[in-house]
Design a protein around this nucleic acid. Structure first.
Lengths: 135, 135
DNA sequence: CAGCATCCAGCCCGATACTG
DNA sequence: CAGTATCGGGCTGGATGCTG
């Protein structure tokens, strides 16, 4: 599917010391999983759920700009991947709560680190953009 | 670009104890920056560049599945954001090298942690998917 | 309340062709 | 080698309306 490199000799410009340190393997699954984590809403949802379980409505309010449809889809995907669990309470009106699974918990720190980085460097990046745009 | 939400009233329903612990602020920039990091190729490119500077062609070979067009676009975006720098050498044939800026370097650990997580839990996730799909 | 179904506009991104 | 230009299909994702 990929790695169909044209077969020329690796004329690596010897800049990097460790040639083995390339990407994990280019496996199909790797890409797929990365896409899931990297999609438009997952990180936000995981970040918010890392504070505790929440029901659908609250989640909807807390993720700025997400539509009902996309929140539902995102949650289904995360559920499918075993990152989030869904609990339906037999009440009326219906209540559904979402929370991180242990697998999801293990993503917590990473996601928060990412969010932290974005928060910390946001200004810097916006400056860079303005600079780049006006030249 | 987005966030043209119809302006619904904030009727937050007081369920959570700490109202401050929400997302950084829902700022426009935050979403935008997160989108950049989270887009299809950025993480891969940053991960590879974190091993050292590379020229365009090599990068193209090392990022599995990326088209020339998307690699160019991704690099332009990262350059605009100040994460990657681009150096053109006045030679023939032309040589252009890309490397992480200090800002990009500061993303290194986070990105590698993310990649590591995906690698570590990929199997688990694929199992979960299979399980989810057959019920 | 939580959500699915439907419609459909817009962009993402790959394929292809061309240039300095 | 390292791009730019252009085209077009597919998928993303918002809006709306309807259910249990």
């Amino acid at each position: 599917m990929f790695a169909k490199h044209t077969g020329h000799p690796d004329q690596i410009s010897d800049i990097t010391p460790h040639p083995c340190e390339t990407w994990p393997d280019n496996g199909r699954g790797f890409r797929e999983t990365l896409d899931r984590i990297g999609d438009k809403w997952s990180v936000l949802v995981i970040g918010i759920l890392s504070q505790g379980p929440l029901r659908f409505g609250i989640l909807h309010q807390r993720v700025p700009g997400v539509s009902q449809r996309m929140l539902t889809l995102t949650l289904r995907h995360l559920e499918r991947d075993g990152i989030v669990s869904r609990t339906v309470y037999a009440e009326v009106p219906p209540r559904v709560e979402y929370q991180l699974t242990p697998l999801g918990e293990s993503l917590r720190e990473t996601v928060r680190a990412l969010a932290q980085w974005v928060t910390d460097h946001n200004d810097e990046i916006e400056d860079s953009r303005r600079n780049y745009d006006t030249r």
